[in-house]
Design a protein around this nucleic acid. Structure first.
Lengths: 200, 200, 200, 200
DNA sequence: GATGAATGAGAGTTCATTCAT
DNA sequence: GATGAATGAACTCTCATTCAT
């Protein structure tokens, strides 16, 4: 009985998060009224506050839920082993696939949380930095293959930066347009990152 | 007489923009009250409306002023000629130097304008896309040196993405910490972009 | 069967009133949420509405229950007879004892009902005024002993005022602090009231 | 110029306080909406926040303004000297006169501030306690005349309690009705307090 | 009886913008 | 030009009350 209740509660929470994601992606966090989320979810706005402490809590929950999954996936990729290219390819593929499947989630997480000083604090910041550290570890574990002078930490930042601009890109989306799909995008990012645009 | 007046007018406008930049960088566009800008500029808040139509106009002016300069610089670099590396190095240097000299301006432009659907429209979007196209042209003009399969357009996006994460990066800033300066940062970005982290 | 049910019903009502008293005393009537009362009573908040019409009804019930007892006690004291001092001493003792035994009840009744224009109406006001009239009667019945110029009605008001400030007094409580107990307090009030602070 | 401005500012503040006093007295602090105050003052509700930090600040300002005056008057009475009766008579007269002149102010101060745990804190509590201490000092300075066993502190509390119930009294007002005026009320309180209702 | 999800009126507060001085 | 008083739309959050389960 209680299980049924809890399950229903969680399902509702998720429904609200889904609605919030959609609206945040459209109007941005600040531009979104709590009432907008409620309308999108088909409920009264007051009910939002039964499931979340406040508007901010919604965004944080959204990020934490998404990012904890991301971290697990990255850890899995790291542990599976394989060549550096294989690993980076998997990582890029994961991000770009996530984007094509749930563009709203990615957009909100990247634009509203990661880039916002207010939200990228404490718990959120820590989760985010773990990603950098994990990627740095992946790259560093193949140190022997790296071009001389390559700093694994800087490399991690640049790799994520490359991915981020593809994920976010209001501009890029229109600019790159039709040619971009998950596969070709991931290949391009990884190859450019590994071999450069000029090559040897 | 009119010139003198105009000059004074322009000077005041610039002073307000300077103040706005500082406050926007600290609190974000939405988190900034018009009164905050006025206080920073040392004037009454009502006076803001003698120089700008509204709050939004301030951010747009800020972006346009900054970005038109940026475009000119990039055009100059393109026309000056030189090797691909030379050009990219100049571009990276320009952005990173701008960032180290006026971190507030860059932060505001990147975080508040570029990421905001509301602001990245019409005039702003056009200015922004010109940058991509210019960079694409720069890269494409050295097509013969490019590694096979390299798309100049995608390459342009990735290069700017790499720069952007360094410019913005609340995270990266702390993560990369002290080691990063204009010179070494520009080198790392350009070399990674040209030759990859693995090399040949 | 019906009796049993009624008894259980009444017991639950009283339990809710007890809980409400405690919470009202802590947070005040307005500051208390219906949910707070329910939590204190260990029940679901919806259940409150099976026992009371609404939040206001709880406070009114609380007052009526308490005050009807008070009135009975005062009537008893009046009828028992004895000297004026004996009677006043009993009355003061009753109030101060009630306060020391159930400070919450007194606090709520005095602060939330008596002071509130909204609640001190109709039924409540009548009950309250009866107290004054009863006390006036007590005093008037010893008219022959009264100092010349003493108005029984005014005297009744002053006596209750003296008691009230001792009962309520957030300030007085700290100000008088440890020295005050039921016995000494009642003595002080009665003696001052009867003989004054100067005396003859 | 600035003086003119400041004066106008202060005058407006006072006007808002006057309006607030009136409305608080009618509906109570909690029952009053900020908009009610604005309407009473004939201004837009937003303007309230140019003059006060928030609703609470209005009540505190009201209390502080009133009570600081009260303290000054009491100090003056203490220093002027005279018999105990003279002093108490002046004090009672001051309070009752204030009440008859500005019943709203007194009502609000007594009912909403003094009796409210929330507001009787910190600054307000201190101001209030000073009054008790001052009155205690007044009484103690005539120690030699006091009836044996009289505690000046307890006496101070009882005296203020007697006054308070007269000032407040929703009940008392109707109950004592027409017979009560400033002069006779003050006499009754002081005489009862000094000599008791029985006398020698 | 019992639960708590659901509703929505309502309240406090913020702040961009206008405009009289 | 300059000031800041004035306005009111907008928004977040609270909470008494209802009602399906």
């Amino acid at each position: 009985m209680s299980d049924k209740r809890d399950a229903a509660f969680e399902e509702k929470r998720r429904a609200i998060l889904r609605a919030a994601t959609k609206v945040f992606a459209q109007k941005g966090y600040t531009g979104t009224r709590v009432g907008d989320i409620a309308k999108e979810a088909g409920i009264a706005y007051g009910l939002i506050y039964h499931y979340f402490a406040n508007k901010e809590d919604i965004l944080n929950s959204l990020f934490q839920g998404t990012w904890s999954l991301t971290l697990k996936v990255l850890e899995g990729i790291h542990e599976e082993g394989g060549t550096l290219r294989t690993k980076l390819r998997k990582i890029a593929g994961f991000f770009l696939e996530a984007w094509s499947l749930q563009p709203d989630v990615v957009e909100v997480v990247v634009l509203e949380v990661i880039r916002s000083p207010k939200f990228l604090e404490a718990a959120n910041l820590e989760a985010f930095q773990k990603t950098f550290m994990l990627l740095e570890k992946v790259i560093a574990s193949h140190q022997d293959q790296l071009r001389e002078g390559t700093d694994p930490r800087m490399a991690a930042v640049l790799f994520l930066g490359s991915l981020e601009i593809l994920l976010t890109g209001f501009v890029a989306r229109e600019f790159l347009s039709e040619g971009l799909n998950t596969e070709s995008g991931a290949d391009a990012v990884v190859d450019t990152f590994l071999y450069g645009i000029v090559g040897s």
